[in-house]
């Protein structure tokens, strides 16, 4: 119980820190965003492939939560598939 509470506290602190740092960042709000990406992607992120520039730099929250979603689906599969010999390697 104490361990769980510590983990929850740590996650909450991380969330608060990330939220605060995101609030500090300046937002780019020039009108068509697509044109901005195509023009400035190489200068900002040093990536020739604009798709990579977007998913690893401009929109990295998407990537993080996609990775988290894969982990959740694995947890779901592990809970669903039950087998007689599965106790010893859980």
């Amino acid at each position: 119980m104490k361990r769980r509470r510590t983990i929850a506290l740590a996650i909450f602190i991380c969330f608060a820190a990330v939220f605060w740092m995101t609030r500090q960042a300046t937002l780019v709000t020039d009108a068509p965003v697509a044109a901005y990406y195509i023009e400035n992607a190489y200068h900002d992120t040093a990536s020739v492939n604009v798709v990579t520039a977007i998913y690893l730099n401009y929109r990295y929250y998407d990537t993080i939560f996609e990775a988290l979603m894969l982990l959740f689906s694995i947890i779901g599969v592990i809970y669903m598939s039950v087998h007689e010999g599965s106790e010893h390697d859980e």
Binding site: T52, L56, L70, L71, I74, S81, H83
Partner: peptide, 27 residues
């Protein structure tokens, strides 16, 4: 960029293999 791509690549490889092997051998 290279580091992030590598991390994501190995994570996806691990995850999909675990899903498949789990499905094949434990179901």
């Amino acid at each position: 960029l290279i580091l992030m791509n590598t991390l994501i690549g190995f994570k996806v490889a691990c995850g999909m293999s675990v899903i498949f092997l789990r499905f094949v051998f434990y179901e």
